[in-house]
């Protein structure tokens, strides 16, 4: 029984100072690189499944440059049985269908029963890589899993999919299957610096020339660049709030986010204050 886990490395910008809005450049020194927490949650789930059921082999896959090799080292240190590196340059500029194709090729040829990957690539804010891979390999997928209950003997399992407000949809699916997991599914184990520094064996996969991603016949999305765009005001009647116009625009763009925070103070009679808070909630669409 094989579980394949797809991992990626992400760059976290822990502070908004990492983006220069004048030159529209992401400052590299403000980026912290590390494994995507959604990927490590997926790997943790795979390792837990292995601890529960005998005869499971957990393989880690990653596509990319040195970052991919790093994340695979991390995966081995966490406890993956083997790691496969599909080298590629500049994957952040590569279309997701293309990336999915290369990963799918590598996984497919190694025979897999269960494929796990993170729900989201936290820096790129994309969630379609897993489903694309599932489609190329030809297996069904379930996204946003918060719980996986596998019965390997019967080649099937139950998957809990996260909905809004704590609700869950439960699906039953037969293997082979691809599941994208939520971050909260498992807290990935802590991997000591020593373990990360050990010389783990990582298998490099050279791309076969027979398969080409162009066979997929998909047209790519092109990354043009980064910018703080001029936001378009939200439709509908604007309700007066405590926020300044500029704060409001920033907030519209980011859907929140934690920089600005220089708005005025709301105070007054309880009824009046309550009205203004509820207006704020309504404007943000919280009910």
């Amino acid at each position: 029984m094989k579980i394949s886990v797809i991992l990626d490395e992400i760059a976290v910008m822990a502070d908004s100072s990492g983006f220069d809005p004048i030159s529209n450049v992401v400052k590299q020194e403000w980026l912290i690189h590390g494994p995507n927490p959604y990927s490590t949650a997926a790997l943790e789930e795979a390792i837990r499944l292995r601890e529960k059921y005998p005869d499971i082999q957990v393989s880690a896959y990653s596509l990319g440059g040195a970052d991919a090799a790093r994340v695979l080292t991390y995966a081995m240190a966490m406890g993956a049985d083997d790691a496969f590196w599909i080298p590629a340059e500049n994957i952040k500029f590569m279309d997701l269908w293309d990336r999915a194709f290369r990963l799918a090729n590598a996984i497919q040829s190694r025979g897999n029963d269960l494929i796990l990957c993170g729900r989201l690539s936290a820096d790129e804010n994309t969630e379609e890589l897993g489903p694309f891979i599932a489609d190329i390999i030809g297996v069904p997928f379930i996204s946003d899993a918060t719980k996986i209950d596998m019965v390997f003997a019967e080649q099937k399992g139950l998957v809990w999919r996260r909905l809004e407000r704590g609700d869950r949809d439960v699906y039953e699916a037969k293997l082979p299957l691809l599941i994208t997991v939520e971050r909260g599914i498992r807290s990935p184990r802590y991997v000591s610096v020593r373990k990360q520094s050990l010389p783990w064996r990582i298998t490099k996969i050279e791309e076969s020339s027979s398969n080409k991603s162009s066979d997929l016949n998909v047209s790519p999305v092109t990354l043009i660049g980064s910018a703080l765009p001029r936001p378009k005001p939200k439709k509908g009647a604007q309700i007066a709030t405590a926020l300044s116009a500029q704060d409001r625009l920033m907030m519209l763009m980011s859907g929140g986010s934690s920089q600005k925070k220089e708005g005025g103070l709301v105070e007054g009679k309880p009824g009046e204050v309550a009205r203004r808070i509820s207006e704020f909630f309504e404007e943000k669409g919280f009910y």
Binding site: G79, S187, P188, R189, Y190, V191, S192, R194
Partner: peptide, 11 residues
């Protein structure tokens, strides 16, 4: 720590 049994709050 080496056995990956660090309490979750410290991760």
């Amino acid at each position: 720590v080496e056995a990956a049994k660090v309490p979750e709050s410290l991760h």
